[in-house]
Nucleic acid binder design. Structure first.
Lengths: 340, 340
DNA sequence: CTGAAAGCGCTTACAG
DNA sequence: CTGAAAGCGCTTACAG
């Protein structure tokens, strides 16, 4: 059943059927009703690919995520989705599983016009390439970004957030502070590490090079890296983890080693995912405005698609340090260790 | 830049360019090279939507998931993805967030031919509707299914698995066994509840109606429902939870109530997600072959798309009870309670 | 092995 | 307000 068949049944031209579907206000009430009746009667569904081909619009937004199972990204996703749906766009998801090749494949979908635009929640491809693409296709970066690139971006200031997290530990009296990073090929990992280093240096604290351990964002890697830190001859009294998942993994390692958090080891996370307030102990962490990041990113993308101008190409959202239970002061740590 | 432009530059017809791209073996080596040179030189990318429109194929598989953040579904997804990619299909994801309306929207993508086929990891629409669709479009159900429907399906036998889980508790001497269900509009919730009831009844055990509490698959709901169960005048000594997430939530509630798992309360989960072996205590649970379910489902879908015949429309995969630490025998529970 | 031509199912500028 | 007609960019059956 195609449009011309519907047209025949309704005694109108295909053009009229098309108008009833896409611009009903251009058709008289009478004709419109006649056509709609036929459409319902035969349960006609327009062939969307034909429409897309004709109009050069897909009404689809592709969102590329490094890991769909992450509680952090799924919140960002919600923000994107809500705005998209409000503007008549459908969201489809590309999960890269942190694989740069799959990132490429999804970007190809955009190049081949299978989506009207794209939000990248991961940006690990080379700079020149990405900038080139963004010059020709609507694209915005959220969370991850690429330095010195003229692509619209929404994120927090990861360096200053990480500095703030680390300084919280320093204020509590800790001096032996370790950092579990994300995979270091990701810019956010390098940013948060830099923030950590800035805080340490500006307080004249040494960073034992063994105090920096590279994780891969997962609970397990937080666990494993923490075990390494605890095995050190001179173990840290506090740890700042790249994200809450690894922070919780680290705490698990602390517990499994017969130690206690925060009494024996203070831990700060990052992201403020839902679980962090259920966890034992409740996590001290940096809150990112996840939903709002997604929302803003999608709003920018829609402007790009509509070729409206964007006054601000880079949006930096506000973070917040959430103090809960996973950090106590260094003196307490000392006491606790002395008891042992 | 379109195909005809490339053709001109290479001094061939558009048909030849098309063949170089889609059926290179039909073109002489010489001509092929000439065309490829031009393609590379001008960086020509075929317009995929035009191709899709012409061939009626999208090479896209739509997978509809009730909750992308679930560790269980993401494993199934991996199985689907790997098979899909091996057969030249791209996978896009539709996340319904357990919303039946969004399930409909994604199914519409299929009806409108924006995907060659679809794997539904959630099937909550009405029966007749779904059967009708599956008669005209390649579709397979995985995990969730609909009873009495002739749609290809891959799943475990949820009833018998749930019975097995409950019987494990019974064998340990428990008689006061509660069940935290999933949302009851989902068939899997009803199946696992039935398995629970079968086990209880076949051992002549009463089911206090307050022992059945409806959760919504989330950690939080497991937590909240467990709190209700513990508040009962005659609380259970064991709980079978619909999934591992709720089982962990339940255990958290036990701990927060000053009790211990398994000493004061035995808990069995379902799914055997990764976290269940990291959890404290390690979860006793039912293992589903998640990756294999996805794999099998996708293999069936590809056969459907290619109009090959399928000998078995329903595939029932094997489950396994994994015994770990979260259940001890009822006698121990009794002792522990007597101490209090 | 290659080309000319038809056609996939819509939408829209144009004319009336 | 409505219709006739062109055309979006490919692919493929057919002919040579």
């Amino acid at each position: 059943m195609k449009m011309s068949d519907v047209a025949k049944l309704a005694n109108v031209s295909p053009a009229t059927v098309s108008r009833v579907l896409s611009h009903p206000e251009l058709v008289s009430t009478e004709t419109r009703q006649k056509v709609l009746d036929v459409i319902n009667q035969v349960n006609y569904k327009p062939h969307i690919v034909a429409r897309q081909f004709r109009t050069k619009e897909t009404k689809i937004i592709l969102v590329v995520v490094p890991d769909i199972t992450s509680a952090f990204f799924s919140k960002v996703l919600r923000g994107i989705e809500h705005v998209a749906v409000n503007h008549g766009y459908q969201v489809i998801l590309g999960d890269t599983e942190n694989d740069i090749e799959r990132e490429k494949e999804y970007i190809n979908l955009l190049l081949q016009k299978q989506a009207d635009g794209m939000v990248l929640l991961t940006a690990r491809l080379n700079k020149a390439n990405l900038e080139e693409i963004s010059n020709h296709f609507p694209m915005v970066l959220a969370c991850e970004y690429i330095d010195g690139l003229n692509i619209p971006t929404v994120s927090i200031d990861n360096i200053s957030s990480a500095r703030k997290a680390t300084e919280h530990l320093i204020k509590l009296g800790h001096t032996k502070i370790a950092h579990i990073t994300g995979t270091i090929n990701v810019i956010l990992s390098r940013d948060r590490m830099r923030g950590y280093q800035q805080a340490m240096m500006s307080h004249d604290l040494d960073i034992d090079s063994a105090y920096i351990q590279e994780g891969d964002f997962s609970f397990e890697s937080g666990y494993n890296q923490m075990l390494k830190l605890l095995a050190l001859e001179n173990p840290p009294t506090a740890v700042f983890a790249f994200n809450d998942d690894m922070a919780m993994g680290a705490i698990k390692a602390v517990k499994d080693s017969g130690l206690k958090c925060p009494e024996d080891l203070a831990v700060v996370g990052f992201d403020n995912i839902k679980m962090s307030s259920f966890h034992e102990p409740k996590l001290t962490t940096i809150d990112q405005p996840k939903y709002e990041i997604g929302k803003k990113a999608m709003e920018m993308l829609i402007k790009l698609i509509n070729k409206e101008s964007i006054h601000k190409k880079k949006i930096v959202m506000k973070d917040e340090l959430i103090i809960r239970e996973s950090c106590s002061s260094e003196s307490k740590v000392r006491e606790s260790l002395e008891v042992i």
